[in-house]
Write a protein that binds this DNA or RNA. Structure first.
Lengths: 338, 338
DNA sequence: ATGAAAGCGCTAACAG
DNA sequence: CTGTTAGCGCTTTCAT
């Protein structure tokens, strides 16, 4: 075994290449003025030594960071994962690195996370959702870096916004089901006080039903968000047993809608003939399930790409005014409703 | 608008609290010797100023990092997400932060990622998989920090290992199906040269079939890993059309198995009566699908927790010998096979 | 195109 | 329990 010697620094590389550390530093940048020959020598020396650039020192000295802090409710969610990938791809060109934190759908956890992330001095912060603890808001406002709230259209944004109205998106589903002749429509979601997007969707359901002059009393809440497939199935079981005349059900997400679908299948209840089912998010499973699921596509990847584009823009122009980029979700009608 | 003044530093806090910066530094540590009164004053001053601790400077000066670099093939995968959550939880107690990178199932992308992550001077590196480019290996070996390879049992580990044999796990499925009387068994996977765990599973399938004296010629490969639900469905369609006498099919993952299942349902092919289907990973969908899916549980969360525990251990004892922690996957038989 | 000096914000090391 | 000094590895700034 080699003894764990100290890793080489720029000074070491400079010594081998017989230049000053400053020249080494320049050689590692793109557009800096170093002769081709010198740069070649330096990069070769670095490779020989096994030198690895130290971003920590670089960031400290230059007082700027190539981190973008990002919070999402859950890493195990295809919608947020798509947003994250879009975001990632969009910022990678600029050499920015994403520092990810998962809030577990809890704004108090989000507060802790934001505090932790800010210690790393990110160049910008992206948070999923528009509802935060007062302290989290204050932290973000004081951070003196661009803030982008996504997946929501907050009434009082902290900074920039790339999102959509969850309530309006659910209205698309209600309108569709009502147009198909359904009046007894139920909503399956989680306990409302945690997942704010879920709560917005439920509120949107109630408002849309009332707009049609229909009663919005068939509300099933099962456990803490995010609702799993299994919980979707449990909710459907409860719905069938307590309100058997229900004609259609809107679920807060596609996974729970799929759970609801399988519960119907186990009980021999025909979908959509006896009951229509709709989900939210246009996850892969919505298209593949048999019957396929009617749902709403909020364009998660697009949110990520737009966020990245906005990010690069505001990092270049720090004093640019706060922007709100609204995404328009799409209704996708499939076999599970008619 | 407040002008974007420079954020306060420890020196500013020290000035307000009328102590030295060193005392402020100590007040922010846990076990350091600062009188309660002084600490109280300092923390109050910090809160008033809106001071945020600068980990970048701290890490640079102390030459140690609270980062753990982690690479996973995909963020949009419930198995890896579970591992990540276990890892996260286990590591959070020590105040360590995960610096995540996604390789997109590509060892060249992994190499780029590892290089980028090492620039941040992580205190340890966790990589998913045991196959790497020569350069990636070198980078990890020279990094002088603990390395843990997970989700695999590499023949020549770089450092520590927390994983399982993908081949042995698939053997459980083959043995099960053979015991049920199946002999014409197919394997659905992706193009083998990218996803090494997928390739291991296919190799395990072939070996297990041969051990039973059966032909392992029914191999369907569809597209680049990870195989989606839709690709699972496409593969099943191909299988049905080209090898209609197939009695059972093992899919490289549960999502693709679910896709295969729905294709059968669309074609009116009874599962498991006419064909048995098995997946891999014990994703939520395997238990909820109707019929539910026979699969293998590799205990992703357990891998994460064990990795975290090992990590904390080796960070305390840097010279501890390389460890290999083998996880034993479980066969889970459900409705989709008989 | 290259170099010298200084310092980013914090803490190790040593004092008291 | 608290303070002083120096310096982590890099880059800003100012020279040449």
């Amino acid at each position: 075994m080699t003894p764990p010697r100290k890793p080489p620094t720029m000074a070491d590389v400079a010594r081998i290449a017989v230049v000053s550390p400053m020249t080494v530093s320049r050689a590692f940048k793109r557009d800096s003025s170093v002769s081709d020959a010198t740069r070649e020598t330096i990069l070769q020396a670095a490779e020989t030594l096994g030198y690895v650039f130290d971003s920590t020192a670089s960031n400290l000295r230059s007082q700027k960071s190539d981190f973008v802090a990002v919070t999402i409710p859950s890493i195990n969610n295809a919608n947020f994962a798509d947003t994250l990938r879009g975001l990632s791809e969009g910022v990678q060109a600029r050499g920015l690195q994403i520092l990810l934190g998962s809030t577990n759908y809890d704004i108090h956890e989000e507060e802790r996370l934001i505090e932790q992330l800010l210690r790393r001095r990110p160049g910008a912060v992206v948070v999923t959702g528009g509802q935060h603890t007062p302290r989290a808001r204050r932290l973000l406002e004081n951070a003196a870096v661009p803030v982008i709230e996504i997946w929501d259209l907050p009434a009082a944004p902290i900074g920039h916004v790339v999102g959509f109205s969850n309530a309006a998106a659910v209205r698309l589903l209600v309108d569709h089901l009502v147009a198909k002749g359904c009046t007894k429509i139920a909503f399956i979601g989680g306990d409302a006080d945690r997942d704010t997007r879920g709560a917005d969707r439920r509120a949107g359901f109630i408002a849309a039903m009332q707009a049609h002059g229909l009663e919005a009393t068939r509300l099933i809440a099962v456990g803490a968000p995010p609702i799993s497939m299994r919980e979707g199935a449990e909710a459907m079981a409860r719905l069938i047993e307590t309100l058997p005349d229900t004609e259609a059900v809107i679920c807060v997400s596609d996974p729970s809608a799929f759970g609801a679908l399988t519960e119907c299948q186990r009980r021999g209840i025909a979908v959509p003939d006896r009951i229509s089912i709709a989900g939210f998010g246009d996850y892969d499973i919505a298209a593949v399930a048999f019957p396929s699921l009617t749902t709403v596509n909020p364009f998660p990847r697009e949110i990520g790409l737009q966020t990245a584009a906005l990010l690069l823009e505001v990092l270049d122009a720090p004093d640019s005014p706060a922007r709100v980029i609204a995404i328009t979700p799409d209704l996708i009608t499939r076999e599970s409703s008619r």
